[in-house]
């Protein structure tokens, strides 16, 4: 169409303003001298200084990263298995229940997952004496459970897309079942496994509600720390912390974007190569 979609472009501009003005405002106010977080009182970096000297924040960050690393890794292993099972096994006993179990956590409200996990851990402690104290372990277990289904979704859809004949081809060429798994299946779905891991890592790092229910004394993750501060209102040091987190993520996404566009360009070059090979 040769008509320029003026209305659509206006809406895009409005939408992106809506997306980014709050974040930009937060970044600007993180350099606010004033203790009153919403009133401008001059430029200062003192909130960043106080942030870096805040042991509590550093400890929470380390705990969050530890939980996210472990839970994302276990969730990726379990989630990949489930994804493979659902994509490749046509029939097995309890398939209906199984596919229900990998979708339900996706739509289950976090509050309900939270109270159910907490009641489970309390009752379990009552029955068998474990877990004696809630904290790192219980939070990690809960995170694995609700993030593995995201991995499953990603892996399953990649498995379904992949040409199933390549597994047969490997078998036809003399590979035993376990060799097919390592030679063909896993390498082909590897990108999906990686993005599943990244998703699980982010979800774990970001979670407030389920963590709040399943944690115990002494195990405060970064989102929980922010949550407890934010409930009391807007404070300049949270602005500073938020700015740092947004910058780290933003940088990561931009980097990923650059890598992706480079991969795009390589794909274009490959297509050209294939086209030239035709002649």
């Amino acid at each position: 169409m040769n008509r320029r979609p003026v209305f659509l472009i206006t809406m895009l501009c409005f939408g992106f303003a809506f997306f980014y003005i709050p974040i930009l405002s937060m970044i600007v106010y993180s350099f606010n001298e004033s203790r009153l977080a919403t009133v401008w009182g001059g430029f200062s970096t003192k909130w960043y200084v106080s942030l870096f000297s805040n042991r509590q924040v550093i400890a929470a960050l380390i705990l969050s990263l530890k939980i996210a690393l472990i839970s994302a890794t276990v969730a990726t292993i379990l989630g990949t298995m489930a994804g493979i099972a659902l994509a490749r096994f046509r029939k097995f006993r309890g398939r209906v229940l199984f596919s229900g179990l990998v979708t339900a956590p996706l739509i289950m409200p976090e509050v309900i997952t939270g109270i159910s996990s907490l009641m489970f851990f309390i009752l379990l402690a009552d029955w068998i004496g474990w877990p004696g104290q809630r904290g790192f372990t219980t939070v990690t277990l809960a995170h694995i459970t609700f993030s593995m289904v995201f991995v499953t979704t990603v892996v399953q859809s990649r498995m379904v897309q992949a040409d199933q004949a390549i597994e047969e081809a490997a078998m036809d060429l003399g590979s035993r079942p376990w060799q097919v798994l390592f030679d063909v299946t896993l390498p082909v779905i590897f990108p999906a496994i990686m993005s599943g891991w990244l998703l699980a890592f982010t979800i774990s790092l970001d979670d407030v509600v389920i963590t709040a229910f399943t944690t115990g004394p002494g195990a405060t993750t970064l989102p929980l720390l922010i949550w407890s501060k934010v409930k009391l209102g807007v404070t300049p040091d949270v602005n500073a912390l938020a700015t740092l987190m947004v910058l780290v993520v933003g940088l990561g996404v931009v980097l990923a974007g650059i890598l992706m566009s480079r991969a795009d360009r390589r794909r274009d070059a490959d297509a050209r190569l294939a086209y030239q090979a035709n002649e």
């Binding site: 919403t38 970001d206 934010v230 987190m245 996404v253």
Partner: peptide, 24 residues
């Protein structure tokens, strides 16, 4: 991009805008 940034902080960003004394 906003999807990858902390959910909690995105809520928080609006708290800063909606408060009584905020510029917004």
């Amino acid at each position: 991009l906003p999807f990858w940034t902390s959910f909690l902080l995105r809520v928080y960003a609006w708290m800063g805008l909606m408060g009584k004394n905020s510029w917004f």
